[in-house]
Every structure is written in C-alpha cells, then in structure tokens.
Nucleic acid binder design. Structure first.
Lengths: 111, 111
DNA sequence: GCCACATTCAACCGAATGGTTGACAATTCC
DNA sequence: GGAATTGTCAACCATTCGGTTGAATGTGGC
C-alpha cells in the first residue's frame, strides 16, 4: 500500500474515522475525549487514530500525559484533486457539507 | 456498511479500481478490455467492477455477450462534498489532476 | 513513593478483502 | 449443431481489518 491515495481513501472508508475527523474540525482533542462518544474501547479508538495519523489526516502531539489530536486537512488535498478530475464538481458548497455532517453525526455517531 | 460514503471511499482505496476508473474516463469499455492491461485474472477484475458498481461509481450494461462499463461520476459528488468541508480546497485544478493521473497510470498501471 | 490517569502494546478473534482456479451460462459465428 | 468468446459463480486461500481484553508504560498529584 505505497500510494498515499490508498491510505487516505481507506482511512476515510470507516464511519468511525470520519466521525473522528468531523469532531476534530471543531477543535483539537485528547485521545480520551475523542473516544468518549463512541461505544467501543479506548484501544480501538487509539488504533483508528493511528490509521488517521498514518494517512496524514491528523497529527498527534504529546503534552504531559495527554496526547492531543489535530486535524491535518492538507492530506485530503491530493485525494480531492484526484476526485475532482472525475466530474468537474462545483467548488466548496458548505450548505451541502453541513447536511452531510448532520447525517454523519446526528442519528448515530458511532455509525 | 450502510453509508454510501463507506462504499465509495473503500472502493476508491484500491489502486486497481482507481486505475479502472481512470481508464473509463477515456471511454466506455468491455470487461475483457478493462482486464487486459492488468496482470490478474478476469475473475478478479470482474469482482473489482462489482465493487465499483455497488458503490455507484460505474454502471454496467449488457449488449449481446459483451458487458459495457461506464463511468458514473455523480457517485463521487457526495464524497467530494464531504471532503471539501475539511480544507476549502481550491476548485478544479486539472494540471494537478493530470500529474496524479500520470503517477497512477504511468510507471505501473496495476499498482 | 504511591496511586490514579492517559495511552499504547500484545495476543487473540471473527469477518471481510483480494486473489486464485475450474466449472458454468449466455451469446455469437460458421 | 458445435465451437469459441464473454463474463460470472463457487470454492478456496492468505492477509488484513476492526474489535476485544488484559498487561504494560508514562506522567502527574499528593
């Protein structure tokens, strides 16, 4: 799995990981706080964060005993550019984005 | 795996499938012709096409004994909108897209 | 020093993925 | 009708994935 597109797209393919990214849009978060809304173990969330980190979608910085997670949207750029080749999508449409976010986070955050 | 974003992103996570989509950008193709440049069996390509079809990224129509595959870029729209929320990416950048296409298809088409 | 907290590690498990092969079904051509 | 072509199905295999649990590692507070 050498191509960065592989890791980025496969990281995005999991609903838990997309929900985490959405949470990190709001603010940087500690691992424990990221895990809080989900119904799975902390270790599972830790693994998901590792996948997101390997894809470059987040960075993690340890301060004290807390590891902070930060969104790194640049990693999405390559994937976004790749996709845009397939349909001449209109530029940023934040209304539509809000609707998708609600669909992701509203009814069932852990997918 | 109910969310369409799951199926679209996980379909895009495989380099063979992305290469197939790139080929279908040029023109509609029969299954055998899609399989031709790859070093794997026809059955494997048939499975990949099924995954792309399930994600709505292609459609397949049988005419005679030949099944034609057609790109369906609309399925990418939801994913594209979702991603654009994470970075205010600039609108279509076809130069960058060309570079990525070459990276995908040039050195080693079967990834 | 000791206990609590934050996070990861290691081993394990079941299910899904990506590939193979060989048999099969449908269609066209002679 | 019979042979070749197109494509899928079914069974199988190795690997990866997403989750669990329990132990281990740092770090901070008292």
């Amino acid at each position: 799995m050498a191509d960065p597109l592989d890791t980025v797209f496969s990281a995005l393919a999991d609903p838990t990981r997309r929900a985490i990214l959405s949470m990190l849009l709001e603010d940087d978060m500690a691992v424990t706080d990221v895990a809080d809304p989900f119904e799975m173990s902390l270790a599972a969330i830790s693994k998901h964060l590792a996948v997101l980190g390997a894809a470059g979608l987040i960075s993690q910085e340890k301060r004290g005993r807390v590891k902070w997670c930060k969104l790194e949207p640049d990693a999405l750029r390559a994937a976004s550019v790749w996709m845009q080749g397939f349909g001449q999508f209109e530029p940023v449409n934040l209304d539509a984005f809000e609707r998708f976010l609600e669909g992701e986070l509203g009814p069932d955050a852990q997918g």
